[in-house]
């Protein structure tokens, strides 16, 4: 490990700090910077560059101007992938958020149930998306899965073979994995709401529902923003799960942007168009992050308390 070698003594720091003895400090950031630039920043610039080239993933890379972009933008596959990505984002948000808030607030409140609930509840978070997708594929199999074994027709449908069902299944499996995570975030947020606010509301005669909507929800505002940001930006990267579960199918019913990028790049060997999709993915991600930050009005990572 290069960690504790003192590179500091050997040369001048790359930039002067205002601290007199700050000479060592910038050097400490250099290893992280080098690796992050090498495999984070350069690829980010590289993907923009590659979107103006044609490359099959093996041979030479040729500059090809706007060819890739023209191909991608003219392809009806792009609006479709954008639409599916948006649907996945919206549906997984709409399903997970109310459930996570309810569960999180509940878990924050009652010691008795919590210990029992918590142990199993969080297991889905620990499993790899590949493992979850594989298990669900077996579980949902119309012939050999759980529904077929129980002889319940309602459960033994062709879950992954029909567009709407496959889409719903993806949303369900995503929620299965992530509702515990978001509940955990809401649990943390709900615990920071001071008792005094509820007591004051009780004195004013507010009931449970009223307190939930007048205190809990508004106080959870920043938690909601944090959780929603993670859900929304995270939904752009649901690659593993969808790739293993449906591979984008049936047809292209669940072909989200990330999958579209992979299929164009690594299956059709069209790295130029795939890079253009990647650029779009980055732009969508950045736009969403900025939008949600704007909605929050300030840094959502900061204290989640307001007016306490």
């Amino acid at each position: 490990m290069t960690a504790f070698a003192p590179p500091a003594r050997t040369g001048p720091p790359p930039a002067a700090t205002r601290e007199a003895r700050g000479g060592v400090l910038p050097w400490l950031a250099v290893p992280a910077l080098v690796i992050f630039v090498g495999f984070g920043v350069i690829p980010l610039i590289g993907v923009l560059f590659l979107s103006f080239t044609s490359w099959d993933g093996l041979g030479e890379i040729h500059l090809s101007g706007l060819t890739s972009w023209r191909a991608v933008l003219a392809d009806p596959g792009l609006p479709h992938a954008l639409w599916v990505t948006f649907l996945v984002m919206a549906a997984s948000w709409a399903f997970q958020t109310p459930a996570s808030i309810l569960i999180g607030v509940f878990l924050a409140g009652r010691q008795r149930y919590r210990a029992v609930l918590a142990v199993v509840f969080f297991i889905p978070l620990l499993l790899s998306q590949a493992a979850i997708a594989i298990a669900y594929k077996a579980l949902l199999d119309p012939n050999f899965g759980l529904g077929a074994g129980l002889h319940i027709d309602l459960l033994s449908q062709d879950w992954l073979g029909r567009p709407v069902l496959a889409f719903s299944t993806v949303i369900f499996v995503v929620s299965w994995q992530f509702i515990p995570f978001h509940s955990l975030i809401y649990q943390g947020g709900a615990r920071q709401i001071p008792d005094s606010m509820y007591e004051a509301a009780e004195l004013d005669g507010a009931g449970r529902v009223r307190k939930f909507f007048s205190i809990t929800l508004p106080q959870l505002k920043y938690t909601i923003i944090t959780s929603s940001t993670l859900m929304v930006v995270g939904s752009l990267t649901f690659f593993d799960l969808i790739f293993v579960l449906t591979a984008g199918g049936p047809g292209d019913a669940t072909r989200v942007l990330a999958l579209d990028m992979y299929k164009r790049g690594f299956q059709a060997n069209l790295m130029g168009p795939a890079s253009a999709i990647a650029v779009i993915l980055v732009l969508v991600g950045l736009a969403l992050a900025l939008l949600l930050r704007r909605l929050g009005g300030r840094n959502p990572d900061a204290s989640q308390l307001e007016g306490a």
Binding site: F36, P43, G46, V47, V233, L236, M271, S275
Partner: peptide, 20 residues
């Protein structure tokens, strides 16, 4: 720079990573 890295879906950089 690191903060910016948080906002970007790093999967999108996978093609240049592959090249590198």
């Amino acid at each position: 720079l690191f903060l910016m890295g948080l906002a970007i879906p790093l999967q999108a950089t996978i093609i240049p990573v592959y090249l590198i």
